[in-house]
Write a protein that binds this DNA or RNA. Structure first.
Lengths: 106, 106
DNA sequence: GTACTAAGAGGCTCTTAGCGG
DNA sequence: CCGCTAAGAGCCTCTTAGTAC
């Protein structure tokens, strides 16, 4: 099962999609330019784990929800991004749909 | 916006739904009985932040996905749980549905 | 019994100072 | 330029010991 830290895979995926370097992402979220490269590389290699504030700034910069970094498979990661773009009303409608499907698993 | 650590709210929510105490949850995921109460309380009050391995064990014990602890609103948290119960095929079908809705917003 | 907290010991991150592709 | 790493300083968690309800 997905028993490992999912941050490295998700971070690399979202950063490359944004088309920026490790150092540049670090600088954009307010890290010291002298340490941004090393810090971001530690996170992406899974050597160190960022705190939640840092993760939130990365999420904002990369246009993904915070929970994206903790999704353990590709499909869930994509769904979390799609859900993040919905309004509250749309989310509630989707909840009802999925609950109905649960009861009638046709 | 949800600019704070979402873990305390989500953890309390899921733990109370499971109907167990802070200490008991800690013991069930393998903490020392002597420190389980203090540790779990720190997490639920947002004083300390658990590492990812500890979060994964909590998620397993409480029957939620790891990403649940990082959802910043109730609707997203519920959706992440519902999605966690889907098969890969069902997730892919839902991705297609949401993408189609994105292009044709009613 | 349950939730909660202060404070010290020790483990982990941040930073510097680099190397190799 | 870009990705990556070792090693020390210092911060943050884990644990103990305990209070309040």
């Amino acid at each position: 099962m997905g028993r490992e830290n999912p941050i490295p895979v998700r971070l690399k995926e979202a950063r490359q999609r944004a088309g920026i370097t490790q150092k540049d992402l670090g600088i954009r979220i307010g890290m010291e330019p002298s340490s941004a490269s090393g810090r971001m590389n530690h996170y992406e290699k899974g050597r160190h784990t960022p705190d939640i504030g840092t993760l939130q700034r990365m999420a904002d910069e990369l246009g993904v929800p915070l929970s994206y970094f903790f999704c353990e498979d590709e499909a869930s990661a994509e769904l979390v991004c799609l859900i993040g773009a919905l309004t509250v009303e749309q989310k509630d409608a989707l909840i009802k749909q999925l609950k109905a499907q649960q009861k009638q698993p046709d």
